[in-house]
Design a protein around this nucleic acid. Sequence first.
DNA 1: TCGTAATATTTACACTGTGTAATTATTGTG
DNA 2: CACAATAATTACACAGTGTAAATATTACGA
Lengths: 397, 397
Amino acid sequence: MSGRFTPRSRRETRATVLESLLRTGGAFRPSIARETNLTGASISRILTELRKENIIQETRRPAPYVGGPTALVTLSKDVAVAGIELSNSRLSFGVGDLDGTLDYVERMPASSQLSQDEFEILFRQSAANMRDWTRGRDVTIRQAAVSIPGYGRGTGNPIFAWDMARLTAFLEETLHGIPVSVTNSVVAQAAFHRYSISTAYPVADDHLFLFVGHGVAGVIVDETAPIDAFMAFELGHMVIQREGLPCRCGHKGCVEAYTSLRAISKILGIADSEILRRGDAFIEMLNLDGAMRAALRERLFLLGLGLGNALNLHPLSSVVVSGWPSLMPEADRRSILDGLNESLLGGYDENRLHLSFIAPSIGNDPRAALYYAAYCFVRGGGLDTRAETPAALQEIA
Amino acid sequence: MSGRFTPRSRRETRATVLESLLRTGGAFRPSIARETNLTGASISRILTELRKENIIQETRRPAPYVGGPTALVTLSKDVAVAGIELSNSRLSFGVGDLDGTLDYVERMPASSQLSQDEFEILFRQSAANMRDWTRGRDVTIRQAAVSIPGYGRGTGNPIFAWDMARLTAFLEETLHGIPVSVTNSVVAQAAFHRYSISTAYPVADDHLFLFVGHGVAGVIVDETAPIDAFMAFELGHMVIQREGLPCRCGHKGCVEAYTSLRAISKILGIADSEILRRGDAFIEMLNLDGAMRAALRERLFLLGLGLGNALNLHPLSSVVVSGWPSLMPEADRRSILDGLNESLLGGYDENRLHLSFIAPSIGNDPRAALYYAAYCFVRGGGLDTRAETPAALQEIA
DNA sequence: TCGTAATATTTACACTGTGTAATTATTGTG
DNA sequence: CACAATAATTACACAGTGTAAATATTACGA
């Protein structure tokens, strides 16, 4: 389709094929060839290699048409990856396969103001438990992923202000050399919702995934870019009101100070953890109290204002919102549009901007991190990150 | 240095080598090899090819050390590219070589509210003049670049609200099939200032280039990304003050409404075009009038506020500012830091954010577009975009 | 002026990885 | 059970690179 032929290393080609399998959840060879822009010949070569290494499986299926393919190619259920998610209330460890099936989970309560020391103690304990489990079953974890709220490069984490070098060294040591990648929770959530076959998703093109929880953060989901290149978008600390409400960051008038769970829990008079847990039942509160409802609408308006500002910087034609705003009745959500209308260049226009909502994820941890781990494994072509030499490959063969 | 070996197509390798030459302005082979992570053997092959096609030149120089290289490789002076810049006051055409030397310039006055029709008339005339000139001298333009304020994908241009498909078709037709790329003026300016050997530049790592002129726009200069992937960052229409000053976009309280040239020209009581032209002399006005100066400081504060918001979304540790703020005395510029301090997460800290200023470019048009054209030529490996077949290459040889 | 150590440049060869096309295998249907 | 249709494998050609051997060039000192 594009330029005639782009040379790739074996690793890249393997990654392309595996990524296609991860996204589709399994496919016949001809469709893999189509998806990856490779010839059947190449697919054949790559798959023989991957099969020898037990990274993929082929199961017989009736041919979909005369002379059609019969071997459904799927990712192997024998490759284990680990997902580790830190949220504001707990630290969860999970082990599963590339499909997203969780075989082991442990969730430990954690403070939302966890210090790096406390984190390390908690992590070390959970990691030891996970290690016991994998050892008992003779499972080898090929890739681990850790998702942390607020994580990102540059000028430090606004939520957990930790030393990054120390974190990296700690993970390396505690996980005994399992390849590990760290990412922002929002990146993992976005990738999980968008690409995991276990979830439905409203858009298929480039968009902004916005999560409104304890923080307010987003990711630009660029369909052509690798997920591990996604950068979190910290919207929470955009100042939208000079001399406005004080925020935990020390500034005044941040988006977060108006729209985070903590901020609206004050309006509702219930604990922030309650809001998402009540889910749709949360709406019923609103019917009882008109003042609350009006206050929340004002907050949604401000969210829209901030979102519009963000979209002015980085224009996109779709936004997917997750978090408490998704629980609000549609009539109330319209306040977001009003806010957008006051900042988004050219005003809000449903033909130019598509806004959709997905149910806030609660209790799905550490599925997103697990998915991210699977993605990272696949992106590396299923090759050990350390062993780059062909020698390592020959050993397997 | 990185992974052992990344396969590249010939086009990519040629582009890598040529890009290195464009950045350095000429180099000996060993240093090209080092810069591009290629072996001397590869460099040799590529250069023989490029020399045959008259894209590079080699000039003899005394060897820098015993047995050292003697042929300084530079981009050929015989390759012509065209740069076309639309600004708020004129449309400039230029033809030059890959070095940035301008051999032909024509500048036509243009309105800042140019309609697409008017633009086409003006452009057609200038293009015809340029064509006469190139024909007379038997010059073939290999690549053209057009830079337009506000240009970018997505939801239309905030400054020149034109039909993009029409523009593309128009350029294709009017330039008689010369490969042409269109970009945002800020992208061209940033690339020109950062990478052109004719300009000094204060930072060498990833940063935000911010231009404050009639609009307020920036680019994230990512040192590892190709320039033609840079995306403009429209900061001008971030709403920083609800119910604030009206902006030409129809909203209230946009950054542009406070900090654009037009906005401050109202404070100064002189025409906006005068400000940059006076350059440093502009400072003298401030000494006369303390009220003006205080007002400008307030505007710089707001610029800092908006900039901080932008940096929260996309953290970076350096910012380079160009435009009227660069003309202000350093004491006044500090107001930007005060603004940053109220929005940038964690506050402003000179150890975490480096802010520098470069003189606003005035009258250098169309040098930035010319540089961008050279860049695009080089990025394509010096191969005709249309002729992808090896046949075309053989014709040359 | 010339020889030499040091380095640059070119080129033959091996290797990776792909697509093409011929070959072989498999499918559902009549 | 033959057949039309398509899948899967594999030999071969080709592009592009790095390695290393061969060749060329340099400044400098005798």
